[in-house]
Amino acid sequence: MIKQKFSPLNVLAGLILLGALVFTLVPILFMFSASMMPAKDILRMPFRWIPRGFHWQNFAKAVAGNDGSFIFIRNIANSLFVSSVVTVTTVMLSSLTGYGLAKFRFRGRNFVFLAIMATMMIPFEAIMIPLYLVATKLHLQNSYAGLIVPFLVNAFGVFMMRQYLLPFPEEFLDATRIDGASEPGIFWHIVLPNCAPAIATLSILTFRSQWDNLLWPLLVAQSEKMKTLPLYIVKFAAEKYTDEGAMMAVAVLGSIPMLVLFFSMSQYFVSGASVFSSRKG
């Protein structure tokens, strides 16, 4: 784009960008500052953005909980475990299916593809009750299997991997076939390693959406031990002995895994969002 040097329009643009920057970052800064303050400082006017000290009791209370049960540790571990397993299965099944749809010709292929895409139109919120009944019938409620199984793969992952693999050179696959490689071997040794960027993006999207999942665990995780982090946060926020400082400490602790991922792999977060805007292949 051609840029002009200085004009009222540019100043306005700068102000808008700056305003939006303040709007997006200030609540995050608030979370960090408040997590280090005693509750009475958080509600002090004016708010002190840089805490005077480190009120470690907030974090102690966040981890121990109001009842001193330390269930937070178990709950955050559950979230890590469930999100990781779902990420692995989603990546594996999405690439396998995407590869099948992109590089093999078989009768009914288009139908299979459209059927899988159609599931994107079915909101989880509309099927959660029947799913819950299925989970109950299979005795999956209150178990890791119950938390994981409904999310083994998703249509978006299949779509993404298929799009990524469409331009993959057929001659290359045929050459390895002539060399006598088995089809599962080709998938494992040739196709998967060549999908690394797409896999990284899909992993991050999947991990994040599981980390954020509240609705399904709310249905299936009945015991404190099986609860995940979002459930812990909801419970902690509703308890009357929770003060604002401890609340923000829980928020910080619960965000650290995602923030670490974000700072170390930010380009995949951004490419994940832009997958949607790439024109269809």
Binding site: I28, W211, L214, V234, M258
Partner: peptide, 19 residues
């Protein structure tokens, strides 16, 4: 920077704003 809030989970976002 604009993307940063999307990294936090929905419940964390709601809890921050509740404060």
């Amino acid at each position: 920077a604009y993307y940063a809030p999307a990294v936090l989970s929905s419940v964390v976002a709601a809890v921050i704003w509740m404060s």
